[in-house]
Design a protein around this nucleic acid. Structure first.
Length: 396
DNA sequence: ACTGGGGTTAAAG
DNA sequence: CTTTAACCCCAGT
């Protein structure tokens, strides 16, 4: 790879980084290398910013800087509960294990740092904060708190849960959104708003076959309503094309990196090793994550049975008969075993809600495929059922 | 093949 | 024992 051959406008680089950093399947060593090689974006997108925070947090989950990362994430909350619990756990851990209890409590539970706001989503937080403040200058009380909150792996688990929830909520990249507008289900609206020249560009992008389908849809319900502005779409479209060219040029390191990650994961699985210890903290995404459908490859997602969930509870990393079926004469009447019920994580709930916002209620398959990394072994029917439950709980 | 809606299971209250 | 959440079954499109 010759970085010197990349001529990339900062605005395009922003889109590119938005796309890659926000994909949890891309390992952080790869994103770091990419960031060093391309021009720093003129305007970094919120998704890019968030993804950087997550990657930083994953590599250093229990420190003062981790605490400020969590605060930043919580300032625009997507997973309020997880953020509050992670914040509380890290702050308490730092206080419990620090050399100078009083000083650390003064900093990490400083009321002026707006920590109170971030902690509001966690009901036990106020109580715990009170206990720490009360223990200042009282060694006996400190001892209790130290044993209660000094557990490193417990604190790391809270951070990991936050990271999982945030990845699930991060949503599609700008490029993916543009692709959806131009070639996906939202295409008719977009095409209606476009002039002839723009449409022929679209046609090049999506291929003639798809373009005809879209035209058919367009004509079938020729409604007048259109909301997108052609200039905006044209702009996105232009960027998308330059980015595609860039991708062609840069293609090398990513597949290699992903291959490494997959290989490492396969070895782990073959040994039957469960991701219980610290591996996630050193390379958060390498052994993780279903590959998302890339912009640059057809969106036919086929999950390999090898792909398991990084964050799956250790108890059920073994076989689940979702994928396998018996069809031999002897056991013809064998009933498919019921999957063990797994509680939905906050991250999955958030991914579901944002997916419904994007695709609409009822488009369960789209929601699922639109964010495959977020859902761990859920089917479209599972999403539908979960939505039914959520609607019961909050019928607003 | 997807979706919506009724049915079942098991855990929580 | 009742309620709730997750999962299954199946008929209609």
């Amino acid at each position: 790879m010759e970085p010197s051959s990349w001529k990339l406008a900062p605005a395009v680089s922003a889109l590119y980084l938005d796309h890659l950093f926000g994909d949890s399947a891309v390992p952080s060593f790869a994103t770091s290398a990419i960031l060093a090689a391309v021009p720093f974006p003129s305007h970094s997108t919120p998704r890019f910013h968030r993804a950087r925070l997550l990657r930083r947090l994953a590599s250093d989950p229990l420190s003062a800087s981790a605490l400020s990362s969590i605060l930043l994430l919580a300032s625009t909350p997507s997973a309020p509960t997880a953020a509050a619990q992670a914040h509380l756990a890290v702050a308490a851990y730092l206080a419990a294990t620090g050399d100078d209890f009083d000083a650390v409590v003064g900093v990490v539970f400083d009321p002026r740092v707006a920590a109170e706001g971030a902690l509001a989503a966690c009901s036990e937080a106020a109580d715990v904060v009170g206990q720490f403040r009360a223990a200042v200058g009282t060694p006996s009380a400190q001892a209790t708190l130290k044993s209660r909150w000094g557990n490193q792996s417990a604190a790391e688990r809270r951070v990991r849960e936050l990271i999982e929830a945030e990845w699930a909520a991060i949503g599609p990249s700008l490029l993916e959104q543009a692709t959806q507008r131009i070639g996906g289900d939202a295409a008719p609206e977009t095409w209606r708003a476009a002039d002839e020249a723009t449409r022929s560009m679209y046609q090049q992008l999506v291929g003639e076959e798809r373009a005809q389908e879209i035209h058919a849809l367009l004509n079938s319900h020729a409604g007048p309503t259109s909301t997108s502005t052609p200039e905006h779409i044209k702009f996105i479209n232009k960027l998308k094309r330059s980015t595609q060219e860039l991708h062609d040029a840069v293609d090398d390191p990513l597949p290699a990196a992903k291959e490494d990650a997959e290989r490492a994961k396969a070895i782990l699985l073959a040994k039957g090793v469960k991701p219980s210890g610290a591996p996630w903290s050193s390379s958060p995404t390498s052994e993780a994550s279903h590959p998302r459908p890339s912009l640059f490859t057809p969106r036919n997602v086929v999950r390999s049975p090898l792909q398991t969930n990084l964050y799956a509870s250790p108890s059920q990393t073994e076989k689940q008969p979702l994928h396998g079926k018996f069809k031999d004469g002897q056991h013809a009447d064998q009933k498919k075993a019921r999957r063990k019920a797994r509680k939905w994580s906050e991250g999955e709930e958030i991914a579901l809600k944002s997916g419904v916002q994007r695709c609409g209620v009822g488009k369960w398959k789209q929601v699922l495929l639109g964010n495959p990394q977020a859902f761990h072994d859920r089917t479209a029917v599972d999403l539908k059922d979960k939505w039914r439950n959520l609607s019961k709980r909050a019928p607003a």
